[in-house]
C-alpha cells in the first residue's frame, strides 16, 4: 500500500519538472537558485524524503515488531534497547513511530490524491463552461465548504464506521472543495490565454483543450497546493485517530499513540513526545518544501 503511495508522489513530482524542462532552461535554473537561497526549504525536502524512506523501509528500519506486547517492559523509560521507551503494553515506541509514518503518509497522500481526482475535473468543467453549470457547481461547493472538515469526518465516520480507509475518504472529501475552487479559478484565466485560443482556432475540441492545453498549465499550481494540503491531511488523520474515529488500535498510528499517552503523562511522558514530534516535523517539512516548490515553479515573485 505505502509502496504505491510513494510511487504516486514520485511520478507526481517528476511531471512538473518535465514541463518545466520544456520551458526555457533559464527559468529552471533561476528557480533552482531561488530555492537554494532558501536552505529551510531544502531541509524540508530532505526531511520529507527521510519520512518517505521510513514509511517504505519500515520493516527493515524498525526490526522490533510494533505490535508485540511485553508485560515485563510496561512503560519503561528510554534505554539502548528501546531508545524511545515502551508504551503501556510494553511495545517499543520507536518501532511504533516508524511504522506510524506508513499510516500517516498513506492517509496524507491518498486523501489529497482523492481530493484532486474529484475536484480538478469538476473545477475544470466549471471554469471552462461557465454559465448555469458553473453556478450549480459553485453553489454545491459553497454548501460543501460549510461543513467544517472535522464535523464532516465525524458525520461520515458515524455512517460508515471508523477505519483508516474511511478516515482517508473523509479527509479527501473535506479537501475536495478547495481543489474545485482553485482549479476553476485557474481554468477561468487560462482558457483566455492566446495558446488556448490558438488551439481552439485550429479546431481542438473541448475535452482536448481542457486536457492538453488548460490542465498542464495549471498543474504546477495544483501541485503546490497539494504539497501544502498533505500536512493538513496528515494532522487530520492524527486527530481522527486520536479521537478514536480513525485507525483502530493496535495499529501504530501517531494519533492513537498520543491518545494512549495522554493517560500516562506523569509516569511515561516519552510516550507523548515522539509521536507528536513526528507529526510536527513531517507537517513542518512538507510546508517548508511547499514554499520552496512554489518558488521553484512559479515565475512570479512572492
Amino acid at each position: 500500500m505505502s509502496l504505491d503511495a510513494s510511487r504516486g508522489t514520485a511520478t507526481a513530482e517528476a511531471l512538473p519538472l518535465a514541463t518545466a524542462a520544456a520551458a526555457p532552461t533559464g527559468r529552471l535554473r533561476r528557480g533552482w537558485r531561488r530555492m537554494v537561497r532558501r536552505p529551510a526549504s531544502v531541509a524540508g525536502c530532505i526531511v520529507v524524503l527521510i519520512f518517505v524512506t521510513m514509511a517504505i523501509g519500515a520493516p527493515w528500519i524498525a526490526t522490533t515488531d510494533p505490535l508485540r506486547t511485553d508485560w515485563g517492559k510496561i512503560r519503561k523509560a528510554p534505554t539502548w534497547a528501546n531508545p524511545f521507551g515502551t508504551d503501556d503494553l510494553g511495545r517499543d515506541t520507536l518501532s511504533r513511530v516508524v511504522w506510524g509514518s506508513r499510516i500517516s503518509m498513506q492517509a496524507g497522500v491518498f486523501s489529497i490524491l482523492l481530493a484532486m481526482v474529484m475536484g480538478v475535473p469538476i473545477g475544470l468543467v466549471a471554469g471552462y463552461y461557465r454559465g448555469a453549470l458553473d453556478q450549480l457547481i459553485m453553489r454545491l461547493t459553497d454548501a460543501w465548504l460549510a461543513f467544517p472538515f472535522l464535523i464532516l469526518a465525524i458525520g461520515l465516520v458515524t455512517i460508515m464506521g471508523p477505519s483508516l480507509t474511511n478516515a482517508t475518504l473523509a479527509i479527501g472529501l473535506g479537501a475536495t472543495p478547495t481543489y474545485i475552487r482553485l482549479t476553476r479559478g485557474l481554468a477561468l484565466s487560462t482558457k483566455e490565454e492566446d495558446y488556448v485560443l490558438a488551439a481552439r482556432a485550429l479546431g481542438a475540441g473541448d475535452v482536448r483543450l481542457m486536457r492538453r492545453h488548460v490542465f498542464p498549465n495549471i498543474f504546477s499550481a495544483l501541485l503546490v497546493q497539494a504539497t501544502v494540503s498533505i500536512p493538513t491531511a496528515v494532522i487530520a488523520e492524527a486527530i481522527l485517530s486520536f479521537l478514536g474515529l480513525g485507525v483502530q488500535p493496535p495499529a501504530p498510528s501517531w494519533g492513537t499513540m498520543l491518545n494512549a499517552a495522554q493517560q500516562f503523562l506523569e509516569s511515561a511522558p516519552w510516550m507523548a513526545y515522539w509521536p507528536g514530534l513526528a507529526i510536527f516535523s513531517l507537517a513542518l517539512s512538507f510546508n517548508l518544501a511547499g514554499d520552496g516548490l512554489r518558488d521553484l515553479l512559479d515565475p512570479k515573485d512572492y
Binding site: 500536512p231 494532522i235 498520543l258 503523562l265 507529526i279 510536527f280 513542518l284 512538507f286
Partner: peptide, 16 residues
C-alpha cells in the same frame, strides 16, 4: 509556519 504545522492536540498535551 510552526503554528500551522503543530498538531494542536499534541500542543495541548505538552502544555498540560
Amino acid at each position: 509556519l510552526c503554528g500551522v504545522s503543530v498538531p494542536n492536540f499534541w500542543l495541548g498535551i505538552m502544555l498540560i
